[in-house]
Nucleic acid binder design. Sequence first.
DNA 1: TTGCAAGTGCAAATCATTTGCATTAACTCG
DNA 2: CGAGTTAATGCAAATGATTTGCACTTGCAA
Lengths: 141, 141
Amino acid sequence: MTGSERQTLLDRCRQSGLRITGQRRVILDVLESATDHPDVEELHRKVSAIEPGVNIATVYRTMNTLAEHGLIERHTFEDGRTRFEPAPTDHHDHFIDVDTGKVIEFVSDEIERLQEEIARKHGFEIVSHRLELYVKRLRSD
Amino acid sequence: MTGSERQTLLDRCRQSGLRITGQRRVILDVLESATDHPDVEELHRKVSAIEPGVNIATVYRTMNTLAEHGLIERHTFEDGRTRFEPAPTDHHDHFIDVDTGKVIEFVSDEIERLQEEIARKHGFEIVSHRLELYVKRLRSD
DNA sequence: TTGCAAGTGCAAATCATTTGCATTAACTCG
DNA sequence: CGAGTTAATGCAAATGATTTGCACTTGCAA
């Protein structure tokens, strides 16, 4: 019932004691408003459109800093590129549309439960996991 | 009931019309006898132990050739390194032991089925997928 | 406002992987 | 079995992504 449920990346940066610079504002903004999971180059391109002159090394460094502080997640899909997504609030898995390259999130408690079960059977406990479904849109004609 | 069920990588290379060179013999051998999923550097190290003087570019090239011919699979786990595993005979998913780095394979028809179901619900059909469980050994004390 | 540490730009360094080119060696065919 | 073609290899240089050293700038706490 507080107003803090949809916390912005910027807020979380503050909480982590990171300095809020002009570049960071833009980077965080771009990162947050991205529907897709962008890679560094994409980020840099979008950031530069808003605020030219931001060095790509800064984007790299910012991504690393954010990741260290747990504010973003780093993903490496089969296409090899390292991509980012803001804040692991709730856990979810990914559809990757092989035609468009779009990444869509989904959740399945059932699958999560099965994973636990299988791990236990093998004498493991799960630290984390990743499930990626490479998909094509179903055509209804 | 023929004798062809456990086909060696070498055989499959021959079938694909690849030349069998001294280096390749060794590389295939190392690849096949590896329980873990090695990356290029690991492969090169092991190969060099048997047959010194094999250039790492050759290992890279061989991996690419094998992958093109579908004789090995390329994986990129969260640790970022590109790793290989011989022959995608049956489909399976991976446990990655976060302590040891070991990769263990497993299968779950149930999970596979759930995946199909979820994809369908979202209007997708699955082209391929990857499920990785990052795990720790359960301690029984 | 002042000072210091964190952040930034730029260029050079690093790391993994690929590639051009000359050389070697597998397989095919006679 | 020997010659020819063509893939495979070695080596070094090129590439592409990411990191880093260093000098300079700037956010923020006091």
